[in-house]
Write a protein that binds this DNA or RNA. Sequence first.
RNA 1: GCCGAAGUGGCGGAACUGGCAGACGCACACGACUCAAAAUCGUGCGGUUAUCCAUGCGGGUUCGAGUCCCGCCUUCGGCACCA
Length: 822
Amino acid sequence: MAHYNFSDIEAKWQKRWESDQLFKTEVDHTKEKFYLLEMFPYPSGKLHMGHVRNYSIGDVAARFKKMKGYNVLHPMGWDSFGLPAENAAIKNGIHPNIWTWENIAEMRSQLKLLGISYDWDREIATCHPDYYKWMQWIFIKFFENGLAYKKKNPVNWCSSCQTVLANEQVVDGSCERCGTGVGKKDLDQWYLKITDYADRLLGDLDKLDGWPDKVKLMQKNWIGKSIGAEVGFKFEGLDKTLNVFTTRPDTLFGATYMVMAPEHPDVRGLISGTPYEAAVDSFLSKLQSMSEIERSSTTLEKEGAFLGRYALNPITGKQIPVYIANYVLMDYGTGAIMAVPAHDQRDFDFAKKYNLEIIPVIKPLDSCIDINDLKEAFNSDGILINSGSFDGMSSSEAKTRIIAFLAESKSGQESINFRLRDWLISRQRYWGCPIPMIYCDECGWVPEKEENLPVLLPTDVVFTGKGESPLTTSKTFMHTPCPKCGKQGTRETDTMDTFLDSSWYFLRYVDPHNEKEFFSQEKAKYWMAVDQYIGGVEHAILHLLYSRFFTKVLYDLDLCPVDEPFKKLLTQGMVLKDGSKMSKSKGNVVSPEEIIERFGVDTARLFILFASPPEKELEWSDAGVEGSYRFLNRVYRIVSELNTQTIDVSGPILINNEDEKQLNFVLNTTLKKVTEDVGERFNFNTAISSIMELVNELYRYREVENLNLPLVKDVLKKLVLILSPFVPHISEELWHLTGHEGYLYNQSWPEYNADALVKDYIEIVVQVNGKVKEKLNVPSGLSRTEFEDLILSHDTVNALLIGKEILKVIPVPDKLLNIVIK
RNA sequence: GCCGAAGUGGCGGAACUGGCAGACGCACACGACUCAAAAUCGUGCGGUUAUCCAUGCGGGUUCGAGUCCCGCCUUCGGCACCA
């Protein structure tokens, strides 16, 4: 008998699928669409198991939806700008462009071995000018609408590499490339105004029913909305006000000192020429000598310096000393706080160190804490004390009343703050999308004209890994006429953060070859939003938040039909080996290529999908892979063996005896379970286990005399159909072997027959006081009383009850009966 | 420190609205086939066994709890001086 020759089978069908353009998709208004997307990869050159898992999960969903009758869009592309290409250029002298395209070619061929149902005609690469032209176009839209701006701000700076680093490139406070401690440097950088969208990005999380709560919560925390008040404290003897933000206006009477961030722009003016200047300066220089990480450590002792100035409490007029301190940040709120040591632990620590006054103004509801002798700050809500006319109010009431009071005297109002900062997108890098802006002495920053896009990356650059962006070394790039006035202008030489490229790629897929628009609105209307998005949880915040931000901006500009990009999100777990993430340094990497060569891609896919539910971590097991391989052999063997008997059989399926009924029952429970597990829950592991049970049942049934061949034929056909999303190659082979035409991808998903699920007799459980005592076969579908009477009349049940007093009987028809006795 | 998730056999994991804990697979053991091995097929497989004990630990609700509630422990993840 023919045996399962996976390598021939896989090569054969992959070739046919490709030449017949099986997975090519077009807009079709007669069908409901389904847009399924896996996060596109960075072309590092090698496919790893995480990729295989990600795309296998996606392929099951895509093939299933197609068979369910949807018009499925399932594209793939490359997130191909980024640092590794440039590092390779510095290290090996290969141009990033060559390095990247070679990697793409390599990875594409590996990816094709997986047999995923991608429409390769829609392939995109973010480093291709056809793509980044539209990236630049979008950037200009942001600029024209006031959402992109340039400002000078302290950024991460590696003094050894002489370059700016993204936050992600700072690992444990050091440069990821050279290990030098990272400092801060003031640089002129481009920002996107994501803070304008903070409230909507937060509020619309509620719309995202199909997202994991975990991811929504992470975004919520990242956006970090705080409701409170901005309060102005006048400086004593100066015509100047110190504005602070607080979430606890109810503690205003407990403010005993003020703190400004060391970088606060007003500090210099307050101390200049005063006797305090020298002491403050020595504190500031101490801070400057520290690295950013040392400074931002929560365990750092709180230290500061008195400015020799006083502010006045806007309600009481009380005189309050003003400090600077290392624990107040310039880039949150107003860069200054009112310190209430009785009710904030940080202020409490500082007050203890500098012997500052601690006045309790909130009393706990249960007064078990001695509020006058605090060992630590009491930071919960409570009842106001020591607060004049506000005494006795609850914290929440006092917040409202005190804000109202401040508003009346024009010294404060309600205020909301977000921890989300504007998005710094400038990178002093070569291998990224050029920022299409030109600086002109007359006109300032002017966007490049649309007809001149894309602003191409120059090729005559030097990669030293030091200094400014490599674009400054190009002789052809920098100088260009101002698009507005025509005088000599200078191009921006920084490139964009690559997270911008990936913030809209899902939109380009709907119309990837459009040369006139970044995509046709017509097509976007049909395809958007992405119905199911699948990727690693490591993108829970940045990529997914940025994509939501872009979609909302484009929606507001009437350039996108939806304001949320991804309806449903599945965050797949990592692939582990020996309990930890596969990595070269740990030497626990399992190469997909090797597994595919030894067992075939169907086995690899099956193992990955079977061993763990998609959102959980997956522990790699070589023995488990062999188990999956064994199962596919088992399937191949029984289908081809039984097929010799059923191939020419036709006629109606008649169920005659218990064996046949049982086989038909298992077939239909499996159809139901697989349909629900794949379609509703993404529980691929249990779907597969139920298919295994069907195969086991088929092996059992094979042993009976006089096989019901029309029934067997039906089982074989449906078995192959439901296997096909998981293991498409072997399924396609068996589909044709069993005499069927066409591709499985174009077949309809088999529906279960509800009648077959009804059993005449059901095994039920008899419990006494909640413990299982007996199992009985009884007719199904009885009423509660029929069920109860039948079981209580049973001899073996009565034997359990001899000499006992029955207190209560709880019948659950078709399941169990519990008898409570004394 | 704050927020969140998860703890079930030797292992990966099932158990959907509270209703037979351990589906399916791996590993292991035994049997059949074989001169033999591999492959394959079959049987067994939480601990004890008259019974009982078992879903991290301790309580609770319920006729009945892996599932719900309260309090701990452990592990993992996110944020981290955010006023």
